[in-house]
Simulated assay, not measured.
Amino acid sequence: MSQPTLYYFDARARAETIRFILKLKGVAFNDVRLKEIPAELKEKANFGQLPFYEDENISLSQSLAIESYLAEVHGLDGNTAVERALISQYVHATQDVYNPYFSANNEASNLKFKVETAPKYLTRFEQHLKAAGGEHFVGNRLTLADISVFALLDYFHQQTHNNLLEVLAPFTLLIQFYNKIAAIPSVAEHIKTRPTTRL
């Protein structure tokens, strides 16, 4: 059985949740990090863009589709239609935080992200986590919802050039949640050994 391969740029950004899933489940994979997309890969990738994932069963583009597929394969999806819908809700909500951050290109848009957009969503995430018991977002076990929100919080921890940790600081329950998952040995090892990247 050949190892799965994940193709992405040398960054966390759209691929880090995928990496966390694979690391958490102990899946050995080829983490191919690129400066640009070679022509042959652009031709092979389903939509000519990254991330692009391949294993013995599937070739798949689009980060959320890859995450959803891996969650189902590795038992991180929901047990019911309601759980699966709630998980999808949280996964998509993280994109509403990432997208304005990635598109912020000046001081004003960066400031708006830090004082309006991020606090609005972090407040809701913390409220939902508290209402669910403080351990997991959906059900009583680790799911893609937890990993997706964890990856977002991890991104805040790593964006030192924009000091996003100060935005996260008031959200103590989310910080506790982050620290618990970050302490899982396979996750901790990945955080410790992954390349240091700006995004």
Rank of each mutant, 00 (worst) to 15 (best):
Ala118Met: 10
Leu111Glu: 15
Glu56Leu: 07
Ile147Leu: 15
Gly26Trp: 12
Gly48Tyr: 00
Phe156Ala: 08
Glu40Val: 01
Thr17Asn: 07
Val32Arg: 03
Tyr98Ile: 02
Pro185Cys: 06
Gly48Trp: 02
Leu129Arg: 02
Asn179Pro: 01
Gly139Trp: 14
Leu165Asp: 09
Thr94Ile: 02
Ser109Phe: 03
Gly26Ile: 08
Thr80Asn: 07
Gln49Val: 06
Thr117Pro: 00
Gln3Lys: 06
His190Leu: 07
Ser59Ile: 05
Ile147Trp: 04
Ile21Arg: 01
Glu107Cys: 05
Lys112His: 08
Pro195Val: 08
Tyr8Ser: 06
Glu107Gly: 08
Tyr98Gln: 01
Ile184Lys: 14
Thr123Asp: 11
Asp31Gln: 04
Leu86Ser: 12
Glu54Tyr: 02
Thr123Tyr: 09
Leu50Asn: 04
Gly75Val: 04
Ser186Arg: 14
Asp31Arg: 04
Asp146Asn: 12
Ser148Ile: 06
Leu199His: 12
Thr94Gly: 02
Gln176Cys: 00
Thr197Asp: 00
Arg12Thr: 05
His157Gln: 13
Thr80Gly: 08
Ala28Ser: 09
Phe177Trp: 08
Val82Asn: 11
Phe102Ile: 14
Val187Lys: 03
Asn106Phe: 03
Phe29His: 05
Phe113Gln: 06
Asn163Phe: 10
Asp77Glu: 12
Ala15Gly: 15
Gly26Asp: 13
Arg12Cys: 07
Phe9Lys: 06
Gly26Tyr: 10
Tyr69Phe: 13
Asn99Ile: 13
Leu64Ser: 13
Ser109Thr: 08
Glu72Asp: 13
Phe47Val: 07
Ile87Tyr: 05
Val115Glu: 15
Ile175Arg: 13
Ser148Ala: 14
Asp10Phe: 02
Phe9Tyr: 15
Asn99Asp: 14
Asn30Glu: 12
Ala183Met: 10
Phe47Ala: 11
Ala11His: 07
Arg84Tyr: 02
Ala45Met: 06
Asp55Ile: 03
Gly26Phe: 07
Val167Tyr: 01
Thr196Tyr: 10
Pro195Ser: 11
Ser63Thr: 12
Ala45His: 02
Val138Tyr: 10
Gln49Phe: 04
Leu50Pro: 05
Tyr69Ile: 03
His136Glu: 08
Phe113Val: 09
Asn57Arg: 03
Phe125Ser: 07
Leu199Lys: 14
Phe102Lys: 12
His92Met: 14
Ala39Met: 11
Leu199Arg: 15
Phe177Lys: 04
Ile191Ser: 01
Thr117Phe: 00
Ala182Cys: 08
Ala104Gln: 03
His136Cys: 11
Phe29Thr: 02
Ala81Phe: 09
Ser2Asn: 04
Phe20Asn: 05
Tyr121Arg: 08
Leu142Val: 14
Ala93Asp: 06
His74Gln: 03
Glu43Asn: 09
Glu107Gln: 15
Asn140Gln: 15
Ala45Gln: 03
Phe9Leu: 07
Leu70Asp: 01
Asn30Met: 00
Ile175Ala: 00
Gly133Phe: 05
Asp31Pro: 04
Asn57Cys: 02
Arg141Ile: 09
Gln62Met: 10
Val91Lys: 06
His161Ala: 12
